[in-house]
Nucleic acid binder design. Structure first.
Length: 375
DNA sequence: AACTCGGGGGC
DNA sequence: GCCCCAGAGTT
C-alpha cells in the first residue's frame, strides 16, 4: 500500500466510512431520484446529471418521466419527441443515446435495465461512471463511481498533483475510489462521496470546517486545499459571427430549418458546421458572417434556403446576442423580417413564434426567439 | 491521448 | 469573466 494513501489503516478506513455515511444521512439534499430505486429513474437521472448541475436537471427529470414513465414508453417514442423534452439541457447526444439504449433494453434485456456491469457498459451513453452509479444505487452492487466530485475529494485526501483527467492519474483515482468504497452500502457511499464534493469539498473555497473527514485529509495537513486539484487546461476560445433570419408573418408565424445530417468530419462544409452550432436541432435560417451580416444572410437565404432574394431594407437587426457553445464564442446578429407571406423555402417548417417548444430547438434558438419577441 | 459536445450557476 | 459541473463517444 502506498503510504500516502488516506486513511492509512483498516481501522481508520472503517471510521472514515462511518463518518462520511453518517454525515450523508444527516445532510444529503432532497432530490427526486433519491425517492426511488427504480433503475429506469436512476438511469435517467444519471444521464441528465452528466456534466450538469443537480438544480438544472430536476425540472427536466420531472417532465421527462411524466411523458416517458418507463423504458418501454421511451423505446416506443419518436426521437424528435425525446429531443424536444431535452431541449435546453444541452449535450443532446445524451438524449439520442438514451433512447437507443432503451430500444436495446427492450430488445435484448426484456425491458429491464441490465444488472450486469458489462451489459450496462455496452449500452450507448453509459460509461464507467454511469454504469457504476446505476447499479450501486439501484441494486447496491459494489462498484465505486469516479466523477468530477469524487476525483476532487480523493485528490485532496491524498494530496494528488497534476491534471486529474490524465489517463494514469484517473486510473489511480479509480483504484482509490474502489478501496474506499463501503461495499455493504455501495449506493449511499457513492452518493455520499459525490455529495461531499458538491456541497463541502467544492472546487473553490472548500468548507473544511464542516467536513466530516477533514482529519483524514492530506491536502488539509499540507495547507493545499485551495491549490488542489490543479486546474484543467482548456482550449483557446474561437469567435464566430452568425446572422439569422427571424421571419414573422401577420399571424406571428416563422420558419425554422430542420437539423442537418451529421457530415463526415473531413468534408464538413461551412453550412453543416454552422448547423452544429445549433446542436443539429431545428433552427432559424442562419449564415456564417465574414464581413457584412445583412448581405451574407440575404445571399444565404436565396442560395441555400431557395428563397427569392429579399430586399435589404426588410431585414431589421436586433442588438447583437452572445452565446457560448463549448469553446466557441458566438456573436449573433438576428434580423427580424416582417412579411405579409412567408417565403417558400426548400426545406423548413412554419410554426407560430410562441410555439417553438413544439420542435426540438437548442438554447441558442430559444435565446434568439426571446430577443425577437421582446421587440 | 486529444477533441467535441450545451448551458448555466456561483463567485 | 471564468470555472466546471453526478462524462461519453469519436478520432
Amino acid at each position: 500500500m502506498r503510504e500516502w494513501r488516506v486513511p492509512h489503516s483498516d481501522q481508520d478506513l472503517q471510521k472514515f466510512r462511518s463518518k462520511l455515511l453518517g454525515w450523508f444521512h444527516r445532510h444529503q439534499r432532497d432530490m427526486p431520484w433519491r425517492r426511488t430505486r427504480d433503475p429506469y429513474c436512476i438511469w435517467l437521472s444519471e444521464i441528465m446529471l452528466q456534466q450538469t448541475r443537480v438544480a438544472a436537471a430536476i425540472p427536466y427529470y420531472e417532465r421527462f418521466l411524466e411523458t416517458f414513465p418507463s423504458v418501454r414508453a421511451l423505446a416506443g417514442a419518436e426521437e424528435e419527441d425525446v429531443l424536444r423534452l431535452w431541449a435546453g439541457l444541452g449535450y443532446y447526444s445524451r438524449a439520442r443515446n438514451l433512447q437507443r439504449a432503451a430500444r436495446e433494453i427492450v430488445e435484448r434485456h426484456g425491458g429491464e435495465f441490465p444488472r450486469d456491469f458489462a451489459a450496462a457498459l455496452a449500452l450507448p451513453g453509459i460509461g464507467n461512471y454511469t454504469a457504476a452509479a446505476i447499479l450501486s444505487i439501484a441494486h447496491g452492487a459494489p462498484h465505486a463511481v469516479l466523477d468530477g466530485n469524487v476525483a476532487r475529494v480523493i485528490a485532496r485526501l491524498e494530496a494528488i498533483r497534476g491534471d486529474l483527467r490524465e489517463g494514469s492519474r484517473w486510473r489511480a483515482l479509480q483504484t482509490s475510489a474502489g478501496r474506499l468504497l463501503d461495499i455493504s452500502h455501495a449506493g449511499d457511499w457513492n452518493q455520499a462521496m459525490m455529495e461531499l464534493g458538491a456541497t463541502v469539498c467544492t472546487p473553490r473555497a472548500p468548507n473544511c470546517a464542516v467536513c466530516p473527514v477533514a482529519e483524514s485529509c492530506r491536502a488539509r495537513k499540507l495547507g493545499l486545499t485551495e491549490t488542489l486539484p490543479e486546474k484543467r487546461r482548456k482550449r483557446a476560445p474561437e469567435k464566430v459571427h452568425l446572422a439569422v433570419a427571424v421571419f414573422l408573418d401577420p399571424a406571428g408565424k416563422t420558419i425554422l430549418f430542420p437539423p442537418a445530417k451529421a457530415a463526415s468530419r473531413k468534408k464538413e462544409e461551412r453550412n453543416s458546421e454552422l448547423s452544429a452550432l445549433f446542436s443539429r436541432l431545428w433552427h432559424f435560417p442562419a449564415a456564417a458572417v465574414r464581413k457584412d451580416a445583412r448581405t451574407e444572410l440575404r445571399r444565404h437565404l436565396q442560395t441555400v434556403g431557395g428563397m427569392q432574394m429579399i430586399s435589404a431594407a426588410k431585414l431589421l437587426p436586433l442588438p447583437p446576442l452572445r452565446h457560448a457553445v463549448t469553446y466557441r464564442e458566438i456573436t449573433i446578429t438576428a434580423f427580424v423580417v416582417r412579411v405579409k407571406e412567408l417565403p417558400g423555402a426548400r426545406t423548413g417548417r412554419v410554426l407560430p413564434m410562441n410555439k417553438l417548444h413544439s420542435l426540438a430547438v437548442s438554447g441558442l434558438t430559444r435565446k434568439i426567439a426571446r430577443a425577437a419577441l421582446a421587440r
